[in-house]
């Protein structure tokens, strides 16, 4: 195994550019799981991001909250302003693992790990976050809702690092994050849901019910058009268009679909059938 220890972002980008198979490592909370028995992983080359101090802080501009490429869940939980303006970020962060994971896990790592069950990604997506990728070739901005193309497939090239996650500052008239896990704390989501409403319209983002985390355009349309919905069952056709859950070791497709519909129905009770 090889580890490269860059001291600056340009150095890290050089290393990634010259070794097309090197893997960036940040908090390690995905990469190090079951590490001793994953001997294949020991044959790879890693680029350690942990000393790229410039990527750590979160910052504010007049119209954006900018998370750094190394900002952790705990950084956001402790930031009173973030909690106030983007409550779903803190809400989701608190439900990621437990404190030991929140202290190490990064938002960028959550995005690039590309788990369909992630908790950081849905709230970022519901806030219209934009992923800023950087490589020796330059910078690129990709809206998070267009970042994934399939299971663990994404618009990031191996030489690119996520250096920023930019979140537009907007007034929200409604926002909710729901995580349904196998237990209350420290559980991977069986169903995740983030919903926001702002001047930009409704955003409904579903997790753990498709190969990637994704927006739900059919459900969003029902909300935009003020369609009356009388029961969770009435949402099932739209849910079926938007997501494609599976049976796996954690839950069943059926359960996921129904919970999704019930959460949407009950959480948004005040909005069904009301336009504008």
């Amino acid at each position: 195994m090889n580890v490269l220890l860059p001291g600056s972002l340009p150095e890290a980008l050089d290393m990634l550019a010259s070794d097309g198979a090197a893997i960036p490592i940040a908090g390690g909370t995905d990469l190090l799981v079951h590490w001793p028995v994953r001997v294949d992983a020991h044959d790879r080359t890693y680029v350690d991001l942990s000393r790229l101090d410039a990527l750590k802080p979160l910052s504010w501009t007049a119209d954006e909250l900018v998370l750094g490429g190394l900002t952790t869940y705990w950084d956001v939980i402790r930031d009173a302003r973030a909690a106030q303006e983007f409550p779903l970020l803190g809400n989701a962060a608190r439900q990621v693992g437990a404190i030991q994971i929140q202290a190490r896990g990064t938002w960028a790592g959550n995005i690039v790990n590309a788990s369909p069950a992630a908790d950081g990604v849905p709230v970022l997506m519901a806030y219209d976050a934009v992923v800023v990728l950087e490589s020796r070739r330059g910078r690129e901005q990709v809206p998070l809702d267009r970042f994934y193309s399939g299971y663990k497939e994404m618009r990031r090239h191996p030489d690119q690092l996520v250096v920023e996650i930019r979140i537009p500052r907007r007034p929200y008239s409604y926002q909710v994050f729901e995580k349904v896990g196998g237990r209350r704390a420290q559980a991977i989501a069986k169903v995740g849901l983030a919903v926001t409403r702002s001047g930009a319209g409704w955003r409904v983002v579903a997790a753990s019910v498709a190969p990637t985390i994704r927006r739900c355009p059919a459900v969003e349309r029902l909300l935009e058009t003020g369609t009356a919905i009388a029961s969770p069952e009435a949402l099932l056709p739209a849910v079926a268009r938007d997501v494609a859950p599976i049976d796996d070791i954690r839950s069943s497709a059926r359960y996921r679909t129904h919970v999704m519909a019930r959460l949407l129905y009950h959480d948004l009770r005040d909005f069904w059938g009301k336009r504008g």
């Binding site: 799981v33 079951h34 437990a98 196998g182 237990r183 209350r184 704390a185 420290q186 559980a187 991977i188 070791i249 954690r250």
Partner: peptide, 22 residues
């Protein structure tokens, strides 16, 4: 969860026991 008579979810992330918050 069984696969051919053996536990398939032999990880603490997939075999859940109560935490203090549960």
């Amino acid at each position: 969860k069984w696969r051919e008579g053996a536990m398939a979810n032999n990880q603490l992330t997939n075999y859940l026991i109560p935490t203090s918050d549960d």
